[in-house]
Structures are given as structure tokens and as C-alpha cells.
Design a protein around this nucleic acid. Structure first.
Lengths: 313, 313
DNA sequence: AGGATCGATACCCTACGGGTATGGAGACGC
DNA sequence: GCGTCTCCATACCCGTAGGGTATCGATCCT
């Protein structure tokens, strides 16, 4: 199976439309149809059901959709990491989303530069959906991720700090004046909550926690059950400002929310762990030093400032 | 990067000889040379140093060798798993090396067939080197592996039982009559030991345990420092019978050694854990049931028979 | 120095991947 | 119910990427 075929299949599997997939791939539709047919013949398996008006994945197609994503990431990783290994001036690439570092990054960078085998650090800012991907496809060496929000399979991790949650509400909202709230207070409010509590099924890789197949590829971006969708944090905050949504976010992003919104600690929100993640089996002294200093900085930081508002727990 | 290119590169990286690699790939040597050159041009990186008489990997080539192996496994896995998903009669494929199940498999299979969502089980016997590969490339769903001998990264695991080690020696060897020995006794003997104690550096994926690069691809098969090599267990046992080697193996394989060899418990040998391993993120009720029953059977088994000879520890 | 070994280059050829044009089947409207 | 639109499949043509054979050239050994 060639990578090109996998990429073609992945495009059709995402679009569920040969024409649009072909457009995205920059080729015409007929060769795409033929490529998928050829793939199906070689595998001896139907991947799509095109009998009806809509193109839909067969069970085998669902399997290949998951596997193809992994395989394409692995191939991209091979390419990226080899390219980077060939550079005369090696770098350490750190990926994070804005505010995703729990305000630790400046201290970490400062401490890291003192290390004997420190490399120049390149910081890549990206959206929530890209972070894990950058790590999986070899663009980044290490990333700040949020457990349990993000899938950590395939990564080794170092937990840095545990954060409670704060509810982001409009300043004039009745809850805005409270010193703290419970999740039940938010549930009692008619405004829908993000993230959607109903969508928070636990994702574990233990097969004993079997759950029927769902289309998971799309589930990365913030979205809500009511049909409202927010493409990024700014849009989400706009929805909050409009009184259409209440967001529950890790407390460290509190500093970055708009002035016209209020943050109220949610005492029983599921805690978020900010973890440093890197690909399994990595052997790099530069990365090792980075992880070590990050852990040290985080430990020192926790010692200096209490993690949660005193007196609440 | 196409899979074909990766496969070509991997072949050359293993053979370190364009002619032999081409032969193995079933193509002529010139197209292989060109393909590698093209790859190097596209990546902007030299992968091999062909200046001398020997072809040798550059640092970037070493990186790609590791990454290519992973990527090719992922692609093969996509293919195998999709094929298997298309079968009308799904099966559960279990991989193990002879004796690698700690004598648990018959009981596990019997108990498993009672489960509501049990599938027909196909048992694949293979050598020590293939086992992990079968799992990584999607040929098998689950495998019995030996920790810490085998690399478990990328797998989820369930430990089944912990075994001590026994030394396999010729019946007339002085140690054969002893009720037990220590590793020091073996070290005192002039006959070399397998596995080679000097080669047993710990393999962890934590980058803090950085170790300089070694050529690891080859290190899977049994081999010894003295230049003697045993391709499989039978050859190893032959070497033992010839008095050229002493083997230390998990105690459960004791039942299978030749009549003309003696087994002596090694009280301070590193314990081996027989684990059931399956790919991360697997979601299959059949596999879940298999893992659960295997864990139950192993637990019951340990309860029934003491794991180690009583009185030794 | 001469030969052997082994990778690179030159040249040709086939087959595969891609494009355009068109067919044909399902969903929908009037 | 027939036309129509949509969308995937088929037919046919073309260019080039990838493979083969012959040969060169460099390195190392004797």
C-alpha cells in the first residue's frame, strides 16, 4: 500500500464525497475513484458503500480510516524527523496552544538555557487540534498537552501541574459574583455549558472499556450539542460574552480571558493536568534536559504558590 | 514519501550494501541507487556515506532507519487490520513463541470459549523476533511477550505471571547437581552465558535514560559476545549440549528442554514477566474478553500452584 | 600495478497515474 | 412519471516515473 493511496483514501473517508476529496487532493475525480477501487480490489474488501446517494464507510473502511491516519502520521514523522536530523544546527521544537503551558514556559526556557546540553528552542503556537498532531507527525519534539482532554497514547509524559477549573461567565451573570460555584450550579443554568458534559465519555485504550464505534476524527474541535459551534477559543469566548454559553476552563488561562468576562472557580470540576509529552522511545539528551528542567520548574512553582485558592478545598 | 521508497531505504539500511538490498527487493541495483538518491535530494539530507568501501548510515540515516521501521509497520498494520475487518468470519489471532505462554494458553482458550462474545481463536507460533512484529504490523491481535526482554512501547499490556530463571546446563556439568545456583556461580564458570550479561543494558523510552546510539535492529535474535551465534532456541540448546554455552531461561520453558540437559534454578536471575500485549487504543469486545479471561486464569493458576519452588526465597 | 568489487551514470522501455469526455444510476421536483 | 440534477464509474489518451541492461569509475586488496 503506497502512502499516496492511503492519503487518497483518508481524504475520501473524511469528505465522504469523491468530488470534494479529489479537489482537496488537487487531482481530478476519476483517477481518485479508480485509485480507491484498486485499493479495494487489492485488499479484497469494500471500503465505501456508494449504493445510496451518500458515500458511507463500511466497517472495514472505518478500520482503515483509523489505521491510515496513524500510518500517515508515522510516515510524516519519518520525513520530518529525518529532515531535522540533517540540519547543521539542531533545534528543540516545543508545541503549545496559547495559554496551554500553565504560565510555566518562560521559567522553563530560562532554566533550560542554563543546561549543559541545551539546544536553541523553537516555540510553535498552534490550535488545540493540531498540538497532538504536530507531535505525532514529527514536526515538534515535545508539547504541552492537557490530560485527560487529549489522547496521550503513543506518548511518554511528565505531569507538570494539576489545575482546577474556572467557569467563564459574562460579568453581569448572576454567578459572576459568587466566590465559587459547583457544577450543579452550572447545570441549573439554562445556558449550555462547554465542554458538553454529555460528550465526556472516558477514552481509554483498554479494550475492556469497549465502546461502539463513533466517528471520532471530527470530534477534536470545540463543539456543543445545541448546534452552536466554536472554531477556536476566541469564538468560544464570544459566545460566552453573548450569553449563549458558559465555558469551564483550566484556571491558568484565567489571565487571558477578556476583560468583559468573569471567572469563577468551579470547586468540583474535573482537574486538568498539564503534561509535557514526547514520542515514545525518544532518546535525545536535549529533550531529556528539557523534561527534567520543566519538571523541576513546575515543582518549584507549586511550592512557591498554592495551586488552588486557599480555603476553598 | 512513498512506502516503496521507505522499504527501499530500509533494505539498504539493513544490508548496508546496495547490491544485496536490490536482490532482496527483487529489483536491479541501479534503480535502487537512483531511488535512494532521489530520496536524499528530496529530504535535503545525506542518508548514507558511500565514500569509503563500506556503505554506512549517516546520523540522519540512523534516524530514518528507526522511523521507517515504525512507519512501515504502521502501513502494514493498516493493511492487515483492514483485510481482517473485511472477513465474514472474524477471528482473534494470538501470537506466541513455543513455550512463551507459561503453560497458560490451554486453560485460557478453554475458559475463553465460554465467554459470550468469544471469537474463534487462531494461534500463530513464531520465533522470538517475530512476535512483537506480528503485533505491530497487524497480523496478530494479541501476543504473549516477555518483559523486560521485549520492547513493549506502543502496546497495552496485562501481566499474567512472574517467573524466575533456570540455568540450562549439560547433565554432567558440575552445576547440574546443585539444588540452585546464583548468577555469580555462572559468572565463575568459563563457559559463556546466554543472554550475554554485558549486553543487558536497560532499554527505557524515558529520554532521561539517554544512551548513545547502537545498532539495535539486529539485536533481537539470540547472540553472544564470543562470536557464537544461535539462530533459534534449538541451536542454542545444541550449543549448551556441546558445553559451549549456558543458557538462563524462564522456568516455564523447563518442561521443553531436551532430556540431555539439566535445569537449575537461578535464585537471583532477573524475573521475567509473561505479559499479554495488544496494540494501544484497540477497541474490540472479543479482545477485551480474551484479556479478562487470561488475567482470571493466570490469577487462579498462581493461587493453585506456588510460583516458585517453595523454600528458596 | 592490476584486478575485483560495488555504486553511479547513460539510455531505453513499459506501465502506471493522471486528465478529458461521457455514461449511468439514484434522488428530487413539478 | 418524466425530466433533471448530482455524483460516481467507465472509456480513452498521454506523459512520466520507475525499472532493466550496459557500462563507467572509484576504491581497496593483493
Amino acid at each position: 500500500m503506497e502512502t499516496r493511496e492511503l492519503a487518497y483514501f483518508a481524504a475520501v473517508a473524511e469528505e465522504l464525497h469523491f468530488g470534494r476529496a479529489a479537489e482537496r487532493l488537487g487531482i481530478a475525480q476519476p483517477p481518485l475513484s479508480r485509485a480507491i477501487q484498486k485499493l479495494e480490489r487489492r485488499l479484497g474488501v469494500l471500503l465505501f458503500d456508494r449504493s445510496g446517494r451518500r458515500v458511507v464507510l463500511t466497517p472495514a473502511g472505518e478500520v482503515l480510516a483509523r489505521e491510515a491516519a496513524k500510518a500517515l502520521d508515522a510516515v510524516a514523522a519519518a520525513e520530518h524527523r529525518t529532515r531535522r536530523a540533517g540540519l547543521t544546527e539542531p533545534r528543540l521544537v516545543v508545541a503549545l496552544k496559547p495559554g496551554g503551558d500553565g504560565a510555566l514556559l518562560p521559567d522553563i526556557l530560562a532554566a533550560y538555557q542554563e543546561c549543559p546540553d541545551a539546544l536553541p528552542v523553537e516555540v510553535v503556537l498552534c490550535g488545540v487540534a493540531e498540538r497532538a498532531r504536530l507531535l505525532r507527525d514529527g514536526t515538534a519534539d515535545v508539547a504541552f498537552l492537557h490530560s485527560p482532554w487529549e489522547d496521550l497514547t503513543g506518548f511518554d509524559t511528565e505531569p507538570l501541574l494539576v489545575e482546577g477549573g474556572v467557569a467563564v461567565v459574562p460579568t453581569r451573570h448572576p454567578l459572576a459574583a459568587r466566590p465559587f460555584v459547583h457544577l450543579a450550579d452550572l447545570d441549573a443554568d439554562p445556558i449550555p455549558r462547554w465542554p458538553d458534559p454529555r460528550a465526556s465519555e472516558s477514552r481509554t485504550s483498554d479494550p475492556r472499556a469497549f465502546e461502539p464505534r463513533t466517528s471520532e476524527r471530527q470530534a477534536s474541535g470545540p463543539h456543543v450539542a445545541s448546534g452552536l459551534r466554536a472554531g477556536d477559543a476566541a469564538q468560544l469566548m464570544q459566545l460566552v460574552a453573548l450569553g449563549r454559553m458558559i465555558a469551564v476552563v483550566p484556571e491558568s488561562v484565567k489571565e487571558q480571558v477578556r476583560r468583559d468576562l468573569a471567572c469563577v472557580p468551579v470547586v468540583d470540576a474535573a482537574p486538568t493536568t498539564v503534561v509535557l509529552a514526547w514520542p515514545e522511545q525518544t532518546r535525545s539528551p536535549a529533550l531529556a534536559a528539557f523534561v527534567r528542567t520543566a519538571a523541576d520548574v513546575a515543582a518549584g512553582d507549586v511550592a512557591r504558590r498554592p495551586a488552588v485558592e486557599p480555603g476553598i478545598r
